[in-house]
Design a protein around this nucleic acid. Structure first.
Length: 569
RNA sequence: GAUCUCGUAGCUCAGCUGGUAGAGCAAUACACUUUUAAUGUAUGGGCCCUGGGUUCGAGUCCCAGCGGGAUCACCA
């Protein structure tokens, strides 16, 4: 038996062998027919009803000749009662004495048949008359227990382990499962809202030759046949607009976007944004549409428009407040940005102690003022409207003021949740705005956009007036499920790959003929295996070893490059 | 990227100014036919993240690394 197994794993593997000796297949192939679930039995309680259910056996409380255990299925938990005489009415008590008492463990999958009854203490339970082993669990699950007051004991809480082993997290922490069920309900409710209005759900490329539609650093990959670099999408906006050019009334997509930027509790390298574009509409229509949609989603998915997020209560009841960008900044800084020059804006930022270097254009400066001074104050859903033209290169100019755009962002809990425009459909203006972005790029704004000439060509064929809106699904789910970190609403958040931590492979070094004094040096240089040794440049290693020799004043011959080459080959 | 902080049994966690590794749950054995987290008695279980250093002696102190978390920076 493998020496790396823990004692509990060894016990379970031995049980596996013993089950086979008793002619019980621990991993049977056949379908196991069920006619109920834990939730159904509890909801439609009928004394004496014959049921067949399957799930994980948990928390056995088996005593001498009878006892209890819990069966967890996808719907929840139900208690089972196992009595030796009911399970094994004949002479042969093996199933009870051996299998139930010794060979089944916490976490094993079993199917049970039996009559439903209520225990003395009033808990709906199944009196098991047949038990089938469905799958053995070879690793012990954490045993988490909850008492009558809801206190949780021995909770499985380490975030690293929870995220890396989400399957365990889901088994053991019911709230986690609930979050993900809600996530799907939220997306379904949104879909339903769009579909009812006749808008079409579409798929557009994830792999793009030009990463457009947003300002962000993309992931780069390479297409072999075309022999060109390709990018994972940072946004799908430009593709959806092409479809509006193509004549659809309204299109939407749940877009998995990828951005090669920092990771923290609100940023994952891949994340989901829903974007929708509707022709013949403007951003005023889109504001009404958005607040109605969010109200609908909250009602459908949560059953209420009132959401508790941390210590704050948030109401998603429409209509939401509307505040212009200019008013928001005026309100929170007393400074009126109307008609101000870049230098005046920069001076104000400096006065307020905000970062405002020469790379920042007018738009970025206003964005800084808003982001630093105002954003955090908007806890209840609020539409911030009419952004400066410099920070919105894809947005139509404001009908009353050419310095502004017809844009809104929806702020909730001090964070941006949605972003929408009256889309820019003047191809000549669009081309100029892209060229402005290129100038910003040349000034050192590494987030400025690339020019997508095919998109400009599409606009030149004519795009009807259109309003578009994007909403961060992960952030919406976080708010609606009261989770402070994005990792909690993604099944498999991105983590650094697991690295097995072995000690240095001294034997391999010795076998390669490396002298003992150099092995010591290699280890302290962080080279623990032959693979690592082969990855370093021999010339660099040569230098490093001799530096090590000198630094530690070792009385050994200096390393020779030829010698090092013989180790590697 | 910066700072702080954590890494001890399958899980949750103790382990003081350095002196032979601890508890509860889980596991194993025995007893027990209705328990409500969680029966009683007994037993087993540890590369204390890795490597190096200081020391007579390191889970504990120091250095480096790996991995996590928090805060900040970055984030149309």
């Amino acid at each position: 038996m493998n020496a790396n197994l823990s004692p509990e794993e060894i016990v379970r593997r031995e049980a596996l062998v013993k089950l086979r000796q008793l002619s019980i297949d621990p991993f049977p192939a056949a379908e196991y027919e069920t006619n109920a679930t834990a939730a159904i039995i509890k909801a439609n309680y009928q004394e004496g009803q014959e049921v067949s259910v399957a799930g994980r056996l948990m928390n056995q409380r088996i005593q001498g000749k009878a006892g209890f255990a819990d069966l967890h299925d996808a719907s929840g938990r139900i208690q089972i009662y196992i009595n030796q005489e009911v399970l094994c009415p004949g002479e042969d008590k093996t199933l009870y004495q051996e299998v139930v008492r010794h060979l089944l463990h916490h976490g094993d999958f079993v199917g049970v048949k039996g009559k439903v009854f209520t225990t003395k203490l009033g808990e709906i339970s199944i009196n098991v008359s047949e038990l089938t082993v469905l799958a053995k669990s070879l690793r012990p699950l954490p045993v988490v227990k909850t008492d009558a007051e809801g206190n949780v004991y021995d909770a499985f809480t380490d975030p690293e382990m929870r995220y890396r082993m989400r399957y365990v997290d889901l088994v053991v922490n019911p709230k986690v499962k609930d979050t993900f069920v809600k996530r799907t309900k939220i997306m379904n409710a949104m879909r339903e809202f769009f579909n009812e209005r006749g808008y079409l759900e579409v798929d557009t490329p994830v792999l793009q030759a030009i990463p457009g539609g947003a300002s962000a650093r993309p992931f780069i990959t390479h297409h072999n046949t075309l022999d060109i670099p390709m990018y994972l999408r940072i946004a799908n906006e430009l593709y959806l607009k092409r479809l509006i050019v193509g004549g659809f009334d309204g299109v939407y997509e749940f877009s998995r976007n990828f951005r090669n930027e920092g990771m923290d509790r609100t940023h994952n390298p891949e994340f989901t944004v829903m974007e929708i574009y509707v022709s013949y509409k403007d951003y005023n229509w889109m504001m009404r549409f958005t607040e109605e949609m969010i109200e609908h989603v909250a009602t459908q998915a949560l059953g209420t428009t009132d959401v508790q997020f941390g210590d704050k209560s948030i109401s998603f009841k429409a209509p939401f407040a509307r505040v212009s960008m200019t008013d928001a900044i005026l309100q929170h800084t007393g400074f009126d940005i109307t008609g101000k020059t870049e230098d005046e804006l920069r001076a104000k930022c400096v006065e307020l102690g905000l970062e405002a270097n020469e790379n920042l254009g007018k738009g970025k400066l206003i964005d800084t003022l808003f982001g630093e001074m105002c954003e955090k104050h908007f806890i209840q859903p609020t539409f911030i409207t009419d952004y400066p033209v410099e920070m919105s290169p894809l947005c139509k100019r404001h009908r009353d003021n050419p310095e502004l755009t017809e844009r809104f962002e929806l702020m909730v809990n001090g964070k941006e949740l949605a972003n929408a425009y009256s889309e820019l459909n003047d191809p000549i203006d669009q081309r100029e705005r892209f060229e402005e972005q290129i100038k910003l790029m040349e000034r050192g704004d590494d987030e400025a956009m690339f020019i997508d000439f095919d998109f400009l060509r599409a606009l030149e064929y004519g795009m009807p007036p259109t309003s578009g809106m994007g909403i961060g699904i992960d952030r919406l789910v976080m708010m609606m499920t009261n989770n402070e970190s994005i990792q909690e609403v993604l099944f498999f958040p991105q983590m650094r790959p697991e690295k097995k931590q072995d000690g240095p492979d001294l034997a391999a070094f010795e076998n390669t003929g490396i002298p003992a004094y150099w092995i010591e040096a290699l280890v302290s240089l962080g080279i623990h295996t032959l693979e690592q040794l082969k990855e370093v440049k021999p010339t660099a290693l040569h230098q490093n070893l001799n530096t090590y020799r000198k630094k530690n004043k070792l009385d050994i011959p200096a390393a020779q490059l030829d010698e090092i080459l013989t180790w590697i080959n």
